[in-house]
């Protein structure tokens, strides 16, 4: 009798075994069905995605930044999570549609569309984070230049998808984001154009505007010699609120309104041009047109601080 009782404690609950078998069968059956009818089980996507080329053209016309979504195969877990958590949410989709030009790269329906040249170009140019899905915001100014000059805002999550509020914050923060060129030197503290005047008033310093453009030898030389080494200019530059402004019209892009306003205000025609704005100190503005070498720049900076 003792032996029988011992065996009874080690039995398998037959109802659980039955449930497991039924669920496995149901799982297999529904799995096969949904494999052949995948689209009806995918979350709806409320974002009005553009084709890559059309999106870039529209962005340059409207001035809105491009919201590039580098996606993968639609049925993969993270793709579905992005669609379900973000792109099917009316509030998020409305924000993207209103403030950005949404462009989806690679996937059109189930990730098996052939790859065309523009998609490849966009991947090479903008996909700074290789794993997909990933989102990059590319403002108009950055579209025609090499992206290494800028740290583009990107949205990527490893593992589980971030809550919707994170996406809301990302969208709010980057809708009016303007590129801040990356200086070769980490010593110089560059300030955003929008914040420069406020900072100058607070710290009682003049603003040094460095107007430049891409693919210009003189600008590149100035950049290299002034901001790339640790010479005395860095000490001088600490007395200024430094602002780097790139004119993108030379590369076929459109400038932001702020950049255009400053170019108009200081009547910039030649690059590079250095402007010292002393409005915060009630002094006279000064400018130096073209790059005249190390020594003259040092003198210019010393005289205007």
């Amino acid at each position: 009798m003792q032996v029988n009782k011992k065996i009874a404690t080690e039995m398998l609950p037959s109802s659980l075994v039955a449930v497991v078998i039924i669920l496995l069968l149901a799982r297999t059956g529904t799995g096969i069905y949904e494999r052949f009818h995948p689209t009806q089980f995918l979350s709806r996507d409320l974002v009005q995605w553009r084709e890559p080329l059309a999106g870039l053209t529209e962005s340059r016309t409207t001035g809105k930044p491009v919201f590039i979504y580098f996606s993968g195969a639609a049925y993969l877990p993270k793709e579905e999570q992005y669609r379900r958590n973000y792109f099917s949410d009316p509030k998020i989709a409305d924000t993207i549609n209103a403030k950005y030009i949404p462009v989806k790269v690679w996937d059109k329906s189930l990730g098996d569309t052939p790859k065309d040249q523009i998609v490849n170009q966009m991947q090479t140019k903008y996909l700074q984070w290789y794993c997909q899905p990933a989102i990059h915001v590319v403002p108009v100014e950055c579209q025609m230049v090499h992206n290494e000059r800028y740290k583009l805002p990107h949205f990527y999550t490893y593992g589980s998808v971030a809550p919707r509020n994170t996406m809301f914050n990302f969208l709010d923060e980057n809708a009016n984001w303007h590129p801040l060129p990356v200086s070769p030197s980490q010593e110089v503290k560059w300030t955003r154009i929008e914040e420069a005047q406020t900072k100058a008033n607070l710290e009682h310093k003049p603003i040094l505007y460095f107007f430049a453009r891409h693919n210009d030898e003189e600008c590149d030389e100035a950049m290299r010699e002034l901001f790339d080494d640790n010479d005395c200019e860095h000490q001088q530059l600490k007395n200024y609120i430094c602002c780097m402004i790139y004119d993108h019209t030379a590369t076929g892009s459109k400038n932001s309104q702020t950049v255009d306003r400053l170019i108009g205000k200081y009547k910039i025609q030649t690059y590079p041009t250095f402007i010292v704005d002393k409005t915060s100190l009630s002094g006279q503005n000064d400018k130096i047109i073209g790059y005249r070498g190390h020594d003259s720049m040092e003198e210019f900076l010393a005289n205007n601080k």
């Binding site: 497991v20 496995l24 799982r27 069905y33 089980f41 709806r44 379900r84 099917s88």
Partner: peptide
């Protein structure tokens, strides 16, 4: 979220959840 965002409920996902749960318990019991 299918209640708000998906065209159809994915029964495969629902059965997968319950199947994994029951299978895990069965393995533990064995």
């Amino acid at each position: 979220s299918f209640l708000a965002h998906t065209a159809s409920i994915s029964w495969f996902a629902v059965f997968t959840y319950f199947s994994n749960l029951s299978l895990s318990l069965l393995i533990a019991i064995i």
